[in-house]
Design a protein around this nucleic acid. Structure first.
Lengths: 200, 200
DNA sequence: ACATAACGAAACGCACCGTTCCCTTTGGAG
DNA sequence: CTCCAAAGGGAACGGTGCGTTTCGTTATGT
């Protein structure tokens, strides 16, 4: 369980004066990402990250005071900005969305998201960051539902946010219970068919 | 941060011979529950539980080899067996269900469930236990949906399991994001209205 | 009567935590 | 130009939890 060999990279890196060294931030985030990829969650300790990045622990704690803060930083660094693609029918748009997130969540970078949700259960700062992120993603998803609503695709009385939440919730649950091998299109149907005009 | 006073209860408790001492199991689970209640997640350490229960760590590890196992045991000890109550209309049955779980999840005992989901993200044993539990709860929920289906309450082509998953997923998401103050009835409508005959 | 097993207690080495020193580097203010 | 302030690496600190081991005690079941 102790793997002290070659844990450090890059020859040297010193202070560049009385201002923050971008290379340090870079090295630390990269180290965190690598550790996550190589040793999983348990491998991501402040100690190990500092070692691998050849950074002082003091430096690390200065910029990322908690493990949660580091997790969030790593996630925000690795996630691309997914823009929903309007496929004409809501069902296809959502199927594409499911397909995309499931694929991403399966990657080492994407797995961080599950860890963030987990960490949020015991770290208030992470919980707050997660909540902001959830609201942001919910809003864009609700917007997509809005497009469909405007097209008259959905039955009367649908609230975009409510439906968007159901769409998100099912994805999150699949993530938390390790069932990302789902058929995205089938899942989209299971969640949406009830709300689409003419599907009854 | 060090609170060594009165961490231990009960005067004495020794071996009762070559068989498991029920009082020990009792004392350990109680200690775990109390620590959880008093100090939150972080307070629940194998070390602290052993101290409080006046138990040897060896004993603790013998019966609950990981923190996750202990968490699951605590949860299973405290949760009552909720039986869905058929209110006639599915919407009312689910509203009652939401009301019940949200109330329970707000209690210190119920909060353990969120921790189990979190722990499952990094502990395979907990993940397996959670998956068994999820399947069990999904089945009973699907049964409830089945009642409704048999009454002709729902539109054609509904798959009981799929709808049950959506119902569960929304509840779980509310839990993971700390929004248990929801209006159960309203939420039930938001999730179900699309699937009910005559609601379009 | 005796092997067997559970129990409490204490100690072990190890790892990580979060903080604190110390010294070096270098930009920017005076 | 000088020197202070801030950033950086490195090393060590005490503290705490982990998981294991060792020991002596207790009492069952055969």
């Amino acid at each position: 369980m102790s793997d002290r060999t070659a844990e450090c990279a890059e020859p040297q890196r010193r202070s560049i004066g009385a201002k923050r060294n971008p290379a340090t931030a870079e090295a630390i985030l990269t180290a965190a990402q690598e550790l996550l990829r190589e040793k999983g969650v348990k491998g991501l300790t402040m100690e190990a990250v500092a070692r691998r990045a050849r950074a002082g622990k003091a430096t690390l704690y200065k910029w990322w005071p908690t493990r949660g803060a580091l997790l969030v930083a790593v996630y925000e660094r690795s996630k691309g900005d997914y823009a929903h693609e309007d496929k004409g029918a809501l069902i296809d748009t959502i199927a594409a969305f499911y397909h995309h997130v499931f694929d991403f969540w399966k990657t080492p970078e994407g797995q961080v998201f599950a860890l963030i949700i987990a960490e949020a259960q015991s770290d208030a700062d992470v919980a707050e960051a997660l909540e902001r992120y959830r609201e942001e993603r919910l809003a864009t998803l609700a917007e997509v539902v809005g497009w469909s609503l405007a097209r008259g695709e959905l039955i009367e009385g649908v609230q975009a946010e409510a439906l968007a939440e159901a769409i998100m919730a099912v994805a999150w649950m699949r993530l938390m219970t390790g069932r990302l091998d789902s058929d995205a299109e089938r899942l989209a149907h299971e969640v949406l068919d009830g709300w689409i005009v003419g599907k009854r």
